[in-house]
């Protein structure tokens, strides 16, 4: 087991390193010069050169890469070209929006999906099962940004109950800040809930088909009793896997929703940084997200291996 864990961790680290090369190389070929962008249309050539010098853009490629990599190892992601503050500070500010948003959406989607899945699985083939899976089928097909637009139209434009966008900051008070996150998290959560409900239902049905469940049933346990006592616990691993993946998706994939609601989250930070050619910020955020996904996968793999020793021999 230890061998397996060490190997997985090493592979994870190698993947992160490979990702850092990909990210750096990709951004290296992005056309456009941050210095010229900042100085605009009336800037003289020597002013642009002076700013490039200040930003350290004139150093050779490899030197910049290793400088950046060295910084990564010590937790220093460099300084933003445009904001000229440490990238870490920028990320921390934005995570304060993205993380709560992702967590609320995740809790919301799980809270909706699991009861639906349990209900459907326990009444497989009934009208209720068909109907709820039909709704889930539609939910999967709804683009979250369109759903967000509809929510804005109903709750912000027509009823004026909730803000149509923007984020007042946590300083404005917990309720004010949460209010700004309600519509975005619903828009993110419902399509995710539809996916999760479908996956959880089939995971539950799979477990219900296993021998030991039949044994439990034969021993006289009621069907819902089996469902809650045995099936749910055993179906939890595939469900948690999906939840873990959805969390990674939510953290990075909120970019469109952040665009709809103009939330200053990680996604918008990257989007903005790319248009401003603040590449060092882009590199930092993308590396953070990539490392998060790799970490989540690693944890999932390792927990699988703990539960099911047979998997340790598979690569």
């Amino acid at each position: 087991m230890l061998n397996y864990a060490v190997k997985r961790i090493l592979i994870g680290l190698a993947t992160v390193l490979a990702a850092s090369i990909v990210v750096f190389a990709m951004l290296e070929i992005v056309p456009g010069d941050p210095a010229r962008l900042m100085l605009g249309m009336n800037a003289t050539e020597d002013a642009v050169h002076a700013l490039q010098e200040q930003m350290g853009l004139n150093q050779p490629l490899l030197a910049r890469y290793f400088h950046w990599l060295g910084g990564l190892l010590t937790g220093d992601l460099g300084r933003s070209y445009t904001y000229s503050v440490p990238v870490v500070d920028l990320i921390v500010e934005r995570v304060a929006v993205s993380l709560p948003l992702a967590l609320i959406s995740l809790v919301l989607s799980t809270a909706i999906a699991l009861p639906v899945a349990l209900y459907s699985a326990s009444r497989r083939g009934t009208v209720a099962d068909t109907a709820s899976m039909g709704v889930a089928q539609i939910g999967v097909a709804i683009p979250n940004f369109w759903f967000a637009l509809l929510l804005v139209y109903v709750f912000a434009v027509t009823l004026r109950l909730l803000p149509a966008g923007g984020f007042p900051g946590w300083n404005a008070g917990i309720w004010q800040a949460l209010k700004a996150l309600i519509l975005p998290s619903i828009a993110l959560a419902l399509p995710q809930a539809a996916i999760l409900a479908r996956v959880a239902r089939s995971a539950l049905l799979d477990v219900l088909g296993e021998d030991y469940i039949r044994t439990a049933r034969a021993k006289g346990l009621s069907r819902p009793g089996v469902l809650y006592r045995h099936a749910l616990r055993n179906a939890l691993i595939p469900i948690l896997t999906i939840v873990g993946l959805q969390f990674a998706f939510l953290l990075a994939g909120t970019i469109i929703i952040e665009n709809v609601f103009y939330l200053p989250g990680l996604g918008r930070l990257v989007f903005q940084a790319i248009t401003q050619r603040d590449l060092i910020v882009v590199e930092g955020v993308v590396m953070l997200l990539v490392a998060t996904v790799i970490l989540i996968n690693l944890v999932v793999d390792l927990s699988y291996a703990i539960v099911d020793p047979r998997l340790r021999n598979r690569p």
Partner: peptide
């Protein structure tokens, strides 16, 4: 070969798809 290809797979999967698309279109 199998190992390498699957690790490359993981690498691509680790990138947030939409952000990568944004970077690709920036290029």
């Amino acid at each position: 070969i199998d190992e390498l290809l699957m690790r490359l797979n993981d690498l691509v999967f680790a990138f947030p798809a939409l952000l990568s698309a944004v970077m690709i279109t920036a290029v």
